[in-house]
């Protein structure tokens, strides 16, 4: 049952071949095999959302997905956001502007959740965004500034496409 499998993962636009036990989670493969440590693990039972990544554009708990299940899917992690030489994306910049992070542990999960929400609901109201962000836990900020950052990004993106 624990025999290793060879699989191909598509992560952040790159193809990776990894050999993993079937029980190995996507979060562990991303973090420890591919060394994409931006995705964090906070509870390993799918509640806190620190491990949220986009799996074919849908926010997904990487701790609840086995790596073998992600074969063939397009995986995006926090490392895919932003531009060259560490330039911040509009959403990342908004988090900084609004002090939407303190210790930063939950932040990658919130960023990926928010990217999913903004893509699915570009016209979301503040209350819609608050409701959607309630999927993840933050222990530092009290959430208000995270909601502020995502609302500001939604507004800016709407204005840019108007």
């Amino acid at each position: 049952m624990n025999d290793p499998h060879l699989l191909t993962l598509h992560v952040n636009g790159e193809e990776h071949e990894v050999v993993v036990e079937p029980r190995r989670t996507l979060a562990d493969v991303l973090r420890h095999d591919l060394r994409l440590t931006g995705t964090h693990v906070g509870c390993e039972h799918g509640v806190c959302g620190a491990c949220t990544v986009l799996l074919d554009d849908a926010p997904t708990r990487a701790c609840l997905v086995f790596a073998v299940q992600a074969e063939g899917a397009d995986v995006r992690t926090v490392e895919s956001l932003g531009g060259e030489h560490g330039a911040l994306s509009d959403l990342q910049q908004a988090f900084s502007d609004h002090h939407g992070l303190q210790c930063g542990f939950c932040t990658p999960g919130f960023l990926m959740l928010a990217e999913g929400v903004l893509a699915e609901q570009p016209d979301a109201s503040r209350e819609d965004i608050r409701e959607a962000l309630s999927a993840n836990l933050c222990r530092c900020t009290g959430y208000q500034t995270i909601v502020d950052a995502v609302c500001a990004t939604a507004q800016a993106r709407r204005e840019a496409t108007a």
Binding site: T39, G82, G86, S96, G104
Partner: peptide, 21 residues
């Protein structure tokens, strides 16, 4: 002022204890 901590934490480049290998 913009926090010095933010760029690395926002881009997944922080180094938390479980990131150490």
């Amino acid at each position: 002022i913009p926090r010095h901590e933010d760029p690395r934490l926002l881009t997944g480049r922080g180094r938390f204890v479980d990131d150490i290998a």
